[in-house]
Design a protein around this nucleic acid. Structure first.
Lengths: 335, 335
DNA sequence: ACCTTTTTTGCAACCGGTTGCAAAATAATT
DNA sequence: AATTATTTTGCAACCGGTTGCAAAAAAGGT
């Protein structure tokens, strides 16, 4: 097998501690010793074993990256940013897929068994039971792309979904739409729920507007399409807040299939601003989540948690979302 | 910190070996001992430390999952299947993102430092230098979604890209197209290159057909659109083999922007059959890669490599791809 | 009840490293 | 040159487990 500490020590004729110190940044070694050890290590192709080291240092640099969202292309981008960002910090993402039915407790135990230094949960739909299970094992956790308003004591990074819901509602009202619908993702999703909360609050302040709401079965194209198909059978609204881009794009397809045109016959407002929303054959007006910022901030927060050994109070970092004007909503009615 | 072997042994009043054995499947322990230990473990909330264990067993159950493709939604599906499939086998994917410029040697060393049991490379564009670097550290490797015809001694699972290129060419010829174009992904991509090889081979056997080819800059919507825009400025062909769905969908958008209709004015054939290809507003005729099979077979192959401790000769598992008829190609010309 | 065979258990060494502590070596001071 | 302060090094214990081996216990045979 590959060379170990002992092999190097033997070859260099020094103690194992010396070798260990050469590979430990900031340890006390003379330059003479260092070059000597390095030479032997070089010749043997020695690389310290990170996991053996972790036994004493109690740092594996492994970060559990757990998600249940492997269908929404938005999350591919999220994974891209997370993995490259973590790698830059010398951290290693252990990807955990909890879609399908997984036991929260088992997942938490698994992460403990692998001694991950921390856990980042990247999902807008992960259930409360997972939050609780993770809370029990004492590992630093950061939740992203989700938001419990009735928050347990956890770290959160993301947009303020409730505020985004309010923002969306005001946008549609400003455009002069008089019948407005909220078309959410799955009812169980926290993100959708919070967006609904904000949206309906504003609507309740505007009794003159005919407000309705419904939920797609999943954060997917097919579900969005299906739900919009259903809506178009009945009294359709003038505009819908799709609450997610993929769902909205599915809805657009349904509208097209009905021979209706956007934004003349019906307006659609998405949320996320995935790459596809900008494709010229889609051109979805949407509210952008600052994904890169959210991810960067999450990693930064995780790094500081690791530093301070969990001494820190949990915090919520909420970032602003903003409208990206494209072609699926009519312009603001000028007063 | 959390309970260790020793704590449990102490509490149960037995040796540490006994405790270790209760948690080692197939070890010799009496039922009396087992229940006694389990009770103590239960009370202390003990879970064996996987990494410490790996020190002696030489198995971490970590699998490096390395990819450089974080923009093509096709790969989100691939990651979904890989992560859940690996988890089912009790294996843990350490996700490594090598997009951006990463040093192959460093990446290989990193994987060795984390003592991964094996590496799965999921990418159609990963360079030969990575293949070589991984080859040097003695870790079982499986390459998926890629294919070197001038193959080094490595394990490969995927479709036969050259055969798929031939298949595509024959499909277009059967439809009676007389000017045909190959529009590949990036020139550097192995997959695109092999597809081109097969495609052009068939074309060279049909001198009556006006054959041309070009390459998009990346496996992305924007690149496909841009390339098709460029092609439409000149003497466009009657049909194109897009060599990737996302690229093809980009091309469709360019065609639409030019006011041309599909399949009447121009035919497009994709490859992959990503979910989006089936969306009713896209409806792309495409050649399907059997993704689920490829992933399952890769995992199975990896599992058997781990079993046999690398005694196995490298093998190539090539799976069949097949046409999915939709709306972007005209029907076969009946003779 | 006694001897033999089989199963269960504990001891102690080991996996590949790190680290507190004291001894040894080097540098600084007088 | 002798004394003191500082840096470097090795010893040995430890991180949390596993495992070969021999002793102890249990089971089987007569």
């Amino acid at each position: 097998m590959s060379a170990t500490l002992k092999d190097v020590a033997l070859k260099a004729g020094v103690s194992t501690s010396a070798v260990s110190r050469t590979f430990t940044p900031g340890a006390s070694v003379s330059t003479k010793m260092r070059t000597r050890v390095e030479k032997a290590a070089e010749e043997l192709g020695y690389q310290p074993n990170f996991l053996a080291r972790s036994l004493t240092t109690r740092r594996t640099k492994l970060i559990g990256l757990v998600s249940d969202n492997f269908t929404n292309p938005f999350f591919l981008h999220v994974f891209d940013l997370f993995t490259s960002g973590l790698q830059e910090q010398g951290l290693r993402p252990l990807l955990v897929n909890i879609s399908g039915q997984h036991d929260p407790v088992e997942t938490a135990q698994m992460l403990r068994q692998y001694s991950v230094d921390g856990v980042i949960v990247a999902s807008s739909t992960v259930g409360r039971d997972f939050v609780d299970a993770f809370q029990n094992v004492k590992i630093p956790i950061v939740y992203t792309f989700s938001r419990y308003y009735s928050s347990p004591e956890v770290n959160i990074v993301g947009i303020d979904n409730r505020a985004a819901g309010e923002y969306a509602a005001n946008i549609l009202i400003d455009r002069g739409y008089e019948t407005i619908g909220f078309m959410g993702g799955p009812k169980e999703a926290i993100s959708t729920y919070d967006r609904y909360l904000g949206f309906s609050k504003v609507m309740s302040e505007h009794p003159e507007i005919d407000f309705s709401y419904s939920f797609a079965e999943a954060y997917s194209f097919a579900a969005g399409r299906k739900e919009m198909m259903r809506l178009l059978e009945g009294d359709k609204a003038e505009a819908y807040f799709g609450a997610d881009d993929v769902v909205s794009i599915g809805a657009l397809s349904a509208i097209e299939a009905h021979g209706l045109s956007v934004p003349d016959d019906i307006g659609i407002l998405g949320l996320n601003d995935i790459e596809m929303a900008g494709w010229e054959n889609i051109n979805l007006t949407t509210i952008r989540q600052p994904v890169a910022q959210i991810v960067a901030s999450s990693i930064e927060l995780m790094a500081s948690l690791l530093e301070r050994e969990g001494e820190q109070y949990p915090e919520a970092r909420l970032l602003p979302s903003r409208l990206v004007e494209r072609g699926t909503l009519r312009p603001p009615s000028d007063i």
